[in-house]
Every structure is written in C-alpha cells, then in structure tokens.
Design a protein around this nucleic acid. Sequence first.
DNA 1: ACTCAACGAGAG
DNA 2: TCTCGTTGAGTA
Length: 679
Amino acid sequence: MSDSRYIEVAIHLPVFQTYTYSVPEPLLLQAVCGRRVQVPFGRQMVAGTVLGEATACDNAEIKPVAAVLDDGPLFPATMIPFFRWVADYYLYPLGETIANALPAGDLPKKSAPPVGKIPKDAVGDPILPDTPPDLTTDQEAVVADLVSRLDAGFCSCLLAGITGSGKTEVYMRVVAAALAMGKTALVLVPEIALIAQAEHRFCARFGHTVAVLHSGLSRTERWHQWSKIARGEAAIAIGTRSAVFAPLDRPGIIIVDEEHDTSYKQESGLRYNACDLAVVRAKLSDAVVVLGSATPSVQSLHNATTGKFSKTYRMDRRINRQPLPAITVVDLREQQARRGPRAYISDELHRAMAETLAQGNQVLLFLNRRGFASLPVCAACGNTIKCKHCDISLTLHKGANAFRCHFCGYSRAAARGCDICGSSSIKLLGLGTEKVEEAVKQLFPEASVARLDRDTTTRKGAMLRILKDLKNRKIDILVGTQMIAKGHDFPGITLIGVICADLSLNFPDFRAGERTFQLLAQVAGRAGRGVDPGRVILQTYNPDHLCIAAATRQDGSAFYDQEIAFRRQLGYPPFSRMVHLHISATDPAKAKARAREAGDCCTALKNSAPAVFGAVEVLGPVEAPIHKLASRYRWQILLKSRSAAAVKSFAARLLAQDGQRLRKGGVRLVVDVDPFFMM
DNA sequence: ACTCAACGAGAG
DNA sequence: TCTCGTTGAGTA
C-alpha cells in the first residue's frame, strides 16, 4: 500500500487540472501528501504539491517525479479537501490556491527557530504569564455553552458582544478547553495591528504553544511559525486572513474576531473571504466556529435569524459596567462658512476637548483618511493634481513632502507644483489626518499630540510604541484613521471626536451604509473603557442619514432592520449571490471592446440554457467607477442571482467556454466571487 | 510560467 | 521564398 507508484500533483501554475506522476523507487517514502515536488511539465521543471495517491491514467504518457522539495509535509492531508473546496468555489486553479496559502519562497535550511526563550512583544518588552480573571455571568454562560459543543461535530455560532464586554476572555477559555481535549485552535484577527494585542494575551495565557502568521513577519520567521504549526509544536495559530490556511491538523475551535471587518476579504490573486472560509474549514473539520463582533455583519445577523447559524450569543454589558458613551451629533453643514482649522473642529468638539484635557483625560480624533489634503488644486490654472497612472486626485503628504496616490502608490515631489502650468501655488482642499494633527497642535499648543495611521506605523513596532505611549499617558490627543477604531482598549480616553463621519458613505457599493455604521459604532466603543464615562462627538454632513442616525443612537437592531429591508427589496446579498467580472487593458478601446465581448458571451450563455441561467441577471458591462487605475482602463460586469448555485455555475461555464478567448492580447479578466468592493 | 507551432507582415 | 515577431494551445 505504501509503495504506490502514482501520485496526483497540483502544479503551481495557472492550470485548472491536476496531473499524475510516477514516483521512482528512491522517492517512494518522501513523495507523499502535503510535500512539494519538482516535476517535468512540458519542456521545463516546475514545482507542484502532492495531493495524494493516484491510479495510472492511460490517455497520457506519465513522467516521473524529479525531486521532493520538502523534508516533511507542509500541511496535513486533512486540508486537501479544504483546498479543493476553495479552488472550486473561487474558480481558481488548485495549484495556485495552495501556492497562495503557503508562505512565499522556500523554507530556510539552516538556523532552527529559537525555543524556550522568554516571549517578547514587538517592542521587545517581555510577556509575563497572566492569571485568568473571574468571568462575568454573561461570559460564563457563553463559555459553558461553547465548551459543551466542542465534541459534537460542526457548529457555527455568532457572538454579538458589545465593545468592552470581554469577548477575548471568552475565546481564551474555549481555546483552553479545546486544547485540553487534544484539539487545536485557530484565531483570526482582522489586521496586523490587532495581532500584537491578541498575541500578547494568548502568549501570556498559553505560552509557546502559540504561533502567529501575518504578512508583517519576515520570510524566515513566517516559515518558522508555519512549520511550528505543521509539525504540531504549536496548537494555537493566531493570524490575519491568510492564517485561515494555517496547517493545523485537528482544529476543534475556529474563532473569527471582528467578523464584520472587510479586511478578511482578499482583494487580489485568490479573492477569498477568510471569514467565510473559516466556516467552511470548521465544517470540513467537524469543528466549532465562533464569529465574534460588536457590530456583526448584515450577512451574519441574517444567518442568525434564519437559523443558518447554530447559535447566537449576546453579551450586552461591559465588564466594568460602564454604560456605552453618549453621542452628540454636530451638523457640519452649519460650519461651512468657517475657515481654517475651526471649519472641521466645531465649537462643541473644541470645548469638549478642552474640558477633557483639563480633567487630565485623553482624546481620540477619528478621520478615515490619511495625508494632509486629498484634493490639491492649482490656484493658477484650476487643474486638479492627479495621478499619472490613475483617474484619481493625489493626496498631499506633508511629512514626506510628496503627492501620493492612495490607489496605485505613485508618489512625486510636492515641490514640482502643478503638472500642467508648473505653478507652485496649490490650494489644499480635502481633509486628512495630517491636517487635523496640525490644526490640533495649533489649537492646543500645550497638549502632546500624536498621529496613528499607515504613514506613522510603517516601521516595525511603531504602532505598538504609539499605543504604549498612549497607555502611559505620554499622548493627550491621538489623531488616527480606522486603525484606531479597531479593538484597542484605551482606559484613559473619555472623548472621541469623529471629524467627518461621511467619508465611507459614498463608496459605490451596496455595503457602504453597513461599513459606515460599523465604523462609527466601533469608534464610539473606544471611549469610556476605564473608570470615567466616555462621550462621543460625531460631526457629519448627513445627520439624518439612516445609518448615521442609527449609529448615533447605538441602535444596531434598528440599523439591521432598515438595512435588511433595503437589501431584500433590491435583491442584494444576503438575498442574492454575486460574481463580479473585471475586464481591464492598458488600451482604453481594447478594454471597452473586450468588455462588450464578455457581455455578449454572458448573454449568449444565458440564452443557451434559459432553464438554468434564466435566473442570473447580467448587469453591464459598465465602466468601473475608477475608470483608470494603475495605467489600466477598467470595465465590469456583475452577475447576480437569488440562486447561489446558478451564478456559481454560470461563472464557471463562462470561464471554461470563453475565459481563454476573453483573456488574450493583454486583456485581464478577473473573477471575484462574493465581491466586496466594486470600484 | 514557459515553450513550441502556427500564422502573417516585411526583405531579397 | 525566407525570416522574425506575435499569438494560442498544451503541459501527465
């Protein structure tokens, strides 16, 4: 049995088939499931992953495996059905799916990972063991119920717990119970910044059985963490979305923290949603999956009400019994006559900041846009300073003294001035965190002001440094983007100012309202985590907008009720499934023509089998909202249907029949199953 | 991704 | 008629 002659290999190239290879005698023991092999493919040698044994096929000449690349399996055989599911669902080649999941590059041969050292955090401070706190009655009830489900097969649960209700402690107790049963645990966190916190707490509780996986690790470190899990030396994997592929053997519990967060959606290459995949992986592993959030996604709430989830837990009280902060709305339309900093720091906010600082407390100002000015306009000729490669205005970054494109990354010196007339007199319209920081420094010269956004946190450990300074009261006022909205616990903060609540409202997709509500509710939750109660001042141009009004009242169920009615009426998810097709080319005419062609293919396919595909709506082709991005002209087609199976097979058929033809001549066709951002 | 065969426009 | 560059199909 063990001396099988043939194996199935997924080639790490964009090919949809798998291939059969023979295994020469000396490699029989090594060429096994989960290891990578080098195989002849056409005239060249390529890498592939062994999926398992195969029977000889007689319609092709079978070549032998050339070499086995790994000393041990990179993932357990139990993950192969999961990889197959992912490849099939996202219409992505299996070999590339696996290659995407694995750490990049090759496993470094030398230098074993350090063992037994005192665990350190990202700025080098030691992590000390913790003592588990007593649970609240809310927490106790949830933990008891979840633990009772651990050995009872697949189970999906929603944990809707308000900010500060102690969800992380619940996770840790359930993980401890799973470990005690000999199972492993997977914990997903939306972004790297939150890993530091989660890692800290899990390491303090569980020590060296914790492994972390995220893109901030060096290639070597990533491989170390990966193989620590693959070898069974770590039973807990904590990570960002790609960690949903962590090579854990028997996950008993899978946790998705802040499950509503859009960063679980991968927006390039294999466009998966780690939250959805966590549920799939749990199902294929007979595990319990917990989706936790203070502001659950509309999709999850819908799943909870329709019984698609096994159980919903609510934790409506904060651990410290503090009430949620009171929210005051300021109508920015009434501020429009004002000039300078006071145009976006209203009297109410200014006064509240002064009071808070006088009390010795801290202030958080939230604006979901980085840079100084997002709309630089030439004062001489009226030209908007735009990106060379995109149809988007550049953002002035004063710190870097450069204009930058937030979409393609293009950057040019600000000193060069207008690119049409050369004038150096540029009007700096549009607001960003840098401008707010500058204004606040002017208005409160005595206060210590810091900024937390992607620009101030690029260096390793910079983020944690700022957060620690905040905790140690070295910062009085912190200005930040959505980075500050997520998960952090700042006991000294009693005032939150939302500079402009409307920025995420105008995105061209149906989830804009949902994201705005969640962001505002999350930001508001940062206040009053300590002894003193908190308050929030929310500035907006749309005080009457339903989702802003609901966020103001902190009324999640009102938001959900109106949003779900809106989605039902318009047939949006969760009442339909969508597949988004992107067509792009560097030549605008070519992009347009090919988009037309793709649209015709869709219509033809629909008409070819009206019984099956009649229920699939084909919307478009239309120009993408950002028509030019990174020098490519973009078009899109949206496939939509109440039947998930219908859209899915429609897209699969379209790709099989017309994919190659539509992709020729430098035209890109990208398929996004369950799209999030349709820009 | 790479490679080979097929096809089509320009030089002899 | 020959050659170079581009395009499309196939890789076990």
